[in-house]
Amino acid sequence: MVSVTLEQLYGWMAQFLWPFVRMLALMGSAPVFGESSVPARAKVGLAAVLTVAVAPAVGPLPDVSPGSLDGLWIVAQQVLIGVAMGLAMRMAFAAAQSAGELVGLQMGLSFASFFDPATGANTAVLARLMNILAVLVFLAVDGHLLMLAALVHSFQALPISAEPLAVGGWGVLVEWASQVLAAGLMLALPLITVLLTINLSMAILNRTAPQLSVFAVGFPISLTVGLVLLAIVLPQTTPYLERLFEQSFQVLDRLLNSLAGG
């Protein structure tokens, strides 16, 4: 007759529950996996499969009951770690979306927006286009696989423990978030420079020939030139996005080390 003690049962629950919570938090907040178009059952199922594969190599777990206050504190920590990792990766996609917003504003397409289920708000068409381009580049460079590898590595860099997380890790995340607008501006800078030159030319033309309706002529010119420039510039944005994703993984490594107090 096989007998199972309560301590053994708690140990098995903890070995699956705590890694599962961290993985599920990442699946809900990370790019690609966390999109609203991905069914919730798929996210939970993928997190469960990864947990079964990774749980034996997680390492020693704290001798804490999952139903105790310390166990709930560990669960909350795993949620924070997973969400922080997902947000660190989402910053690169936020930079691409901000670039689309800036270009759309210069082209006169800022009013062309639609409801985006991923953000739950109205999003400019060009911002959505840049986000789709970033997702395709991310998948092309196997970023989703590298992100899963970083998640597995996080259990060695930041083991499951009842010790509080170091405050310096959140500073790394805030510092990376502060660079989103600058990265988006650098991505959109070629288009913004040309479109700004066209707008200045239209302003000079309006002063020299007031009888010419610049508002009727300037919008089609800006829109046409913007579309032509998009066709030229978009294929050249792949190397920049690759470097942006590489920086995201570097920030992710710094984040884990800082949360661990390193």
Rank of each mutant, 00 (worst) to 15 (best):
V38E: 12
F16D: 02
M147D: 00
L139D: 09
I74G: 06
Q211K: 06
K43T: 03
A182Y: 09
D63N: 14
D70K: 02
L158F: 03
L102D: 02
A99G: 03
G104V: 08
G82S: 08
L72P: 04
V64K: 11
T5K: 04
L212T: 15
A96Y: 04
V75Q: 04
Q77N: 11
L145K: 10
P31T: 12
A162Q: 12
I74E: 08
W18R: 02
F249Y: 13
S178G: 10
Q236R: 14
T193V: 14
L72C: 06
P190E: 08
A231M: 02
V54Y: 10
P210R: 09
L136I: 07
I232M: 08
T237P: 02
M85N: 05
P56W: 04
A209K: 02
V217K: 04
V233I: 12
V38A: 11
L109K: 05
G34F: 10
S113H: 06
L241G: 01
V4Y: 02
P66R: 12
D116W: 00
V217T: 13
E246T: 15
Q8F: 03
L50Q: 07
P117W: 01
W170Y: 14
A40K: 11
P62T: 05
A260K: 08
S98M: 14
A231W: 07
A95H: 10
L173Q: 08
M89D: 04
V64S: 12
P235F: 09
V152N: 01
Q15G: 04
A260T: 06
A47E: 02
T193N: 01
L9M: 11
A149C: 02
N206M: 05
G104T: 01
V251M: 13
M202T: 05
R243S: 12
A150E: 07
A127N: 03
R22Q: 07
V32G: 05
L50G: 08
L17E: 00
T224P: 00
A53H: 00
M186Y: 07
R41L: 15
R41H: 09
M186H: 06
L252V: 14
L181V: 11
I204Y: 07
I81G: 02
N199V: 00
L165V: 02
L136G: 04
V180R: 10
S248K: 08
S113R: 10
I232G: 00
P210W: 10
